[in-house]
């Protein structure tokens, strides 16, 4: 593991158009990932996980919104300062993404070999027999059986798990330094999910890939992540090494969320339940966004945004309770 982070996100802000104004879908998000490391990005729908990913890749259409602040430093280059041509040189080649639904992210009318080949040709400039070999190697590296035959298959001829491996082969074509995995296993059966997770971890061991893994499943987080960032209403409310987060969650939202998930090996009579629901971005409460649902909230929480508190080595959380409510 190298000491300099491969990807460093600092103060990222993304505003989306909403009615006449705008809402902050990503609000002052900062984190870094080292080579060979997996950072989990956890949150509910609308918390800003996917918007963070798209912002890093500069894939937010201008009709939808734009990044209005912050830096995204990939291997020493701030992606936010690049023009589109320069950005294209990095996107896909050095930082790539694998999406949730391989049925919609693959082109249904192109053979999978051509789709993997398109990426390899673009990123590595291969042609002819060398390209054909690289396609087969790429499929084989993702443990797709009989890759020589599969190159001529269409996406609908493959199972969901195999399609996701094709998506991974395209994402790894660069090969990239950073892989963003946006809920890549949500649509898969549990046994197929474990196979894909094991594959990603093996690829990571062999290549030193840094992975940003977006999920809402704490089972995945516990199993494959090194550190975890918890998002709520566009902000990272807590970030910690994974064992530390599970053993010692400091933010009330993290704590409540962990308690509300049933466990495979432990019986509880009644699940802990968080009342209410996540706020709409165009109607955020004043102060801390979680305060209306928080069991520990006091007046200050409803008035001013919470300070970021260092809770331990590599562990921080943004909460007034941890700051003694400002006393």
């Amino acid at each position: 593991m190298s000491s300099a982070p491969v990807l460093k996100v600092e103060g990222l802000v993304t505003e989306l158009r909403s009615g006449g104004g705008s809402v902050r879908a990503v609000d002052d998000v900062s984190f870094e990932i080292n080579a060979g490391e997996t950072l989990g990005l956890v949150g509910e729908s609308g918390s800003g996980k996917s918007m963070t990913c798209l912002s890093i890749l500069r894939l937010i259409p201008s009709s939808v919104g734009r990044v209005t602040g912050g830096r995204v430093v990939l291997e020493g280059t701030d992606l936010m300062t690049l023009d589109e041509a320069q950005m294209r040189h990095h996107r896909g080649r050095r930082i790539s993404i694998i999406l949730q639904d391989p049925m919609t992210s693959l082109n249904p009318v192109l053979r999978i070999g051509d789709q993997v080949g398109e990426a390899i040709k673009l990123y590595r400039g291969l042609e002819g027999p060398a390209l054909r070999d690289a396609i087969v190697d790429g499929l084989r590296a993702m443990r797709i059986p009989a890759p020589e035959q599969r190159v001529s298959a269409y996406p609908h001829e493959l199972s969901g798990g195999m399609r996701q491996r094709v998506g991974a082969a395209i994402a790894m074509a660069g090969p990239p330094a950073v892989l963003i995995a946006d809920e890549p296993t949500t649509a898969l059966d549990a046994t197929v999910q474990s196979q894909l997770l094991a594959l990603l971890k093996d690829v990571q061991r062999e290549t030193g890939l840094a992975i940003l893994f977006v999920t809402h499943d704490f089972g995945i987080v516990a199993t494959i992540c090194d550190r975890v960032a918890v998002m709520y209403a566009g902000r990272i409310v807590e970030l910690a090494p994974v064992a530390e987060l599970f053993a010692n969650p400091r933010h009330p939202y993290t704590e409540a969320l962990l308690r509300s998930v049933p466990d495979l090996d432990v019986d509880v009579e009644r699940l802990y339940s968080i009342e209410g629901q996540p706020p709409a971005l165009d109607d955020l409460p004043a102060g801390c966004s979680f305060a209306p649902r928080c069991a520990y909230a006091r007046d200050v929480c409803r008035e001013r945004g919470p300070p970021r508190i260092e809770a331990g080595p590599l562990h921080h959380a943004s909460c007034w309770k941890l700051a003694g409510y400002g006393d």
Partner: peptide
């Protein structure tokens, strides 16, 4: 065995 436990450190 494919069901992921929320206990950290259990090998995949």
């Amino acid at each position: 065995s494919a069901a992921l436990s929320t206990h950290v450190g259990r090998p995949l």
